[in-house]
């Protein structure tokens, strides 16, 4: 029964099937989307627009990378947007120039960033502990975390924004020259971690089959907890960029991007069943969704049309993915 599969890949693949099978499929789709829309979309190809596009993309990429790690380990993290909101608010409470705990101090911005990252990591650790030590389903754990921490962010601020943040902080998020290299650096680090480190090997093994990993001496619980911590820290890092761009700490920051995060990650090719995923895939997925968003905005389409198109495109990409796994792995 396995004899057929043992012989390896089939022969004679045309260029189209090669493209379909390629892990760069989503990148090709991005190029197609851009090429197809650029002639009709004023300003799509302009430098300013690119800077804006990548400025939008950078924080989304960071969150999606965290999600990628969690999906690879076979979990899911719905709490990322609440982490973005809560860290945004707490960071602003630490550093705003009116009533902040460190108002006026030169250390306000760095301390606030530190606090935000640690807070993100702590929430991630809580998720990880509940999933491993208490054996709770990740979907429910992170769903309740989402409800709880976004509620907490709103309660802390009584649903008000906190403005007047130090310039040192807002520059980080609003100046593409700072934000983009930073995001690229982090993405590079995650890539190395995933592809070339022991942790990356362990991560995939846990995602493919946690029992096999455990029998093979992989510290499964530690790996899973570390992964949720990483997701929390990356969400907090995204929050630093988002908050900086907005120049306010907002308790509803990121509320709308949860589905974009998961959609982009899965679109890129990361499996919801664990084990499979790459930084480059997620980058392509994020690029695709951001490009789509950007082009549709430039076309002057309304908010609701954009939503419908986005939904349709997610479905189309999923369809394409199903088609290629069905044709080539059946």
């Amino acid at each position: 029964m396995n004899v057929a599969a043992d012989t390896g890949s089939p022969s004679g693949s045309s260029r189209l099937t090669a493209a379909l099978r390629s892990e760069y499929l989503v990148l090709f789709l991005c190029a197609g989307l851009f090429g197809g829309l650029a002639p009709f979309t004023p300003g799509l190809a302009s430098t300013d627009n690119f800077l804006g596009l990548f400025g939008n993309l950078a924080p989304l990429l960071l969150v999606a990378l965290g999600q990628t790690l969690v999906l690879i380990v076979g979990g899911i993290d719905l709490s990322v947007t609440s982490i973005i909101a809560l860290t945004s608010v707490v960071g602003a409470l630490v550093m705003n120039r009116d009533t902040g705990w460190l108002a006026g101090s030169g250390a306000a911005a760095p301390v606030a960033i530190g606090v935000m990252l640690v807070l993100g990591g702590l929430i991630g650790a809580g998720n990880g502990l509940a999933v491993t030590k208490l054996r709770m389903p990740a979907f429910m754990v992170t769903l309740t975390a989402l409800m709880f921490f976004s509620g907490l962010a709103i309660w802390l601020t009584q649903s008000k924004n906190i403005g007047n943040l130090p310039t040192a902080f807002t520059e980080l998020g609003s100046r593409p020259a700072l934000a983009l290299p930073l995001a690229a650096l982090i993405a590079g680090l995650v890539h190395l971690l995933l592809e070339r480190s022991l942790y990356g090997r362990w991560l995939r093994a846990c995602g493919f089959n946690a029992r096999t990993a455990h029998v093979s001496g992989v510290p499964v619980e530690a790996v899973v907890i570390a992964t949720y911590v990483a997701s929390g820290v990356l969400a907090a890092a995204a929050s630093v960029l988002y908050t900086g761009r907005l120049e306010t700490g907002s308790p509803v920051l990121g509320q709308r991007i949860l589905l974009d995060v998961i959609g982009a990650t899965v679109l890129g090719g990361t499996s919801l069943f664990g084990g499979k995923g790459r930084v480059s895939w997620t980058f392509f997925g994020v690029l695709f969704l951001s490009l789509l968003d950007n082009a549709l905005n430039l076309l002057g389409l309304s908010h609701f049309t954009i939503m419908m198109v986005k939904g349709g495109v997610i479905l189309l990409a999923a369809l394409l993915d199903t088609a290629r796994t069905r044709w080539f792995n059946a």
Binding site: V266, M307, M308, G311
Partner: peptide
């Protein structure tokens, strides 16, 4: 994924 997609489509359609 399928119902995530129809979530978007449905919300957009309703807003329209």
């Amino acid at each position: 994924i399928a119902t995530l997609g129809s979530l978007y489509v449905g919300r957009g359609f309703g807003l329209w």
